[in-house]
Amino acid sequence: MKVTVITGSPHKKGTTALLADKMIEGAQEAGHEVFRFDAAFENVKPCLACEYCSSHDGECVHKDSMSDFSHQLVEAELIVFVTPLYYFGMSAQIKAVIDRFHASNAKIAGSKKAMLLAASYGPDDWTMTALEKMYESMLRFLNWEDAGKLLATGCPVREVLEQTDFPQKAYEMGKALK
């Protein structure tokens, strides 16, 4: 299976970097092809809603990292979103990538699976509710199937996350991909 992992954290060794690393490790051990796109370290301009893509076969007016990345989205069978929780939603870095899906909607809608891996400072059971709703709405719009969620609440820093079973769960999610 072709797996594309999109990360949204500006911390190369942070909580969600660990979740992404573990999920990728499991997926690769299971024989899957994995491509990782670290949005915070790429040149991704925000969508302008200019509709240039509508009259140019999905090509965006911006010539940035998304130009090369868009073919990965089209080819992927599974898209994994990995984000820290920033004020009850995805980070701006990963959201900018998702907003740019607009140019490829016709090419990426249907017959894909998706996963959500997230980490938050807050431990409350409602902490991830808004993030989950956004993810579920995106899947509904794109007609993608949910392949799983891992919501690591109460993990403000990597050292705390490392003391939980969340990294192992991320690994197992990758290993169990079919």
Rank of each mutant, 00 (worst) to 15 (best):
M1H: 11
M1N: 11
M1D: 09
K2Y: 07
K2M: 06
V5W: 00
V5G: 00
V5I: 08
G8I: 09
S9N: 12
G14A: 11
G14E: 11
T15D: 02
A17I: 01
L18K: 14
L18I: 15
A20D: 05
K22N: 06
K22D: 04
K22W: 03
M23R: 04
M23K: 05
M23G: 01
E25D: 14
G26E: 00
A27T: 03
Q28P: 02
A30D: 12
G31W: 04
G31F: 06
H32N: 14
E33D: 13
R36M: 04
R36F: 08
F37T: 00
A40T: 04
F41W: 10
F41P: 04
F41M: 06
E42Y: 11
N43Q: 09
V44Q: 01
V44A: 06
K45L: 13
P46Q: 13
P46G: 10
P46I: 12
L48P: 01
L48S: 07
C50H: 07
C50T: 06
E51H: 10
C53G: 02
C53L: 05
S55M: 09
C60V: 05
V61F: 10
K63M: 10
K63H: 12
S67R: 14
S67W: 07
F69V: 13
F69P: 02
F69W: 10
S70Q: 14
H71G: 13
H71V: 14
V74M: 11
E75M: 13
A76L: 04
A76C: 05
L78N: 11
L78A: 11
I79H: 01
V80L: 04
V82Y: 03
V82D: 02
T83Q: 08
T83Y: 11
P84E: 12
F88R: 12
F88S: 12
S91G: 09
K95Q: 01
K95S: 00
V97Y: 01
D99Y: 03
R100M: 07
R100E: 04
N105F: 05
N105Q: 00
A106G: 00
A106L: 05
I108P: 01
G110N: 15
K113I: 00
K113V: 01
A114M: 09
A114I: 07
A114D: 03
M115D: 05
M115V: 08
A119K: 02
S120I: 13
Y121A: 15
Y121I: 14
D124S: 15
D125R: 14
D125W: 03
T127L: 10
M128G: 15
T129Y: 04
T129E: 07
A130K: 13
A130P: 02
E132F: 02
Y135W: 04
E136G: 10
E136T: 13
M138S: 14
R140P: 00
R140M: 05
F141S: 14
L142P: 04
N143I: 12
W144H: 06
W144C: 10
D146F: 11
A147T: 05
G148D: 10
K149T: 07
K149Q: 09
K149G: 02
L150D: 05
A152E: 03
G154P: 05
G154M: 07
C155Q: 01
P156Y: 11
V157W: 01
E159R: 13
Q163D: 15
T164M: 12
D165N: 15
D165S: 15
D165T: 15
F166T: 15
F166Y: 15
P167I: 13
Q168E: 14
K169S: 08
A170R: 09
Y171S: 09
Y171W: 13
K175H: 15
A176H: 07
L177E: 02
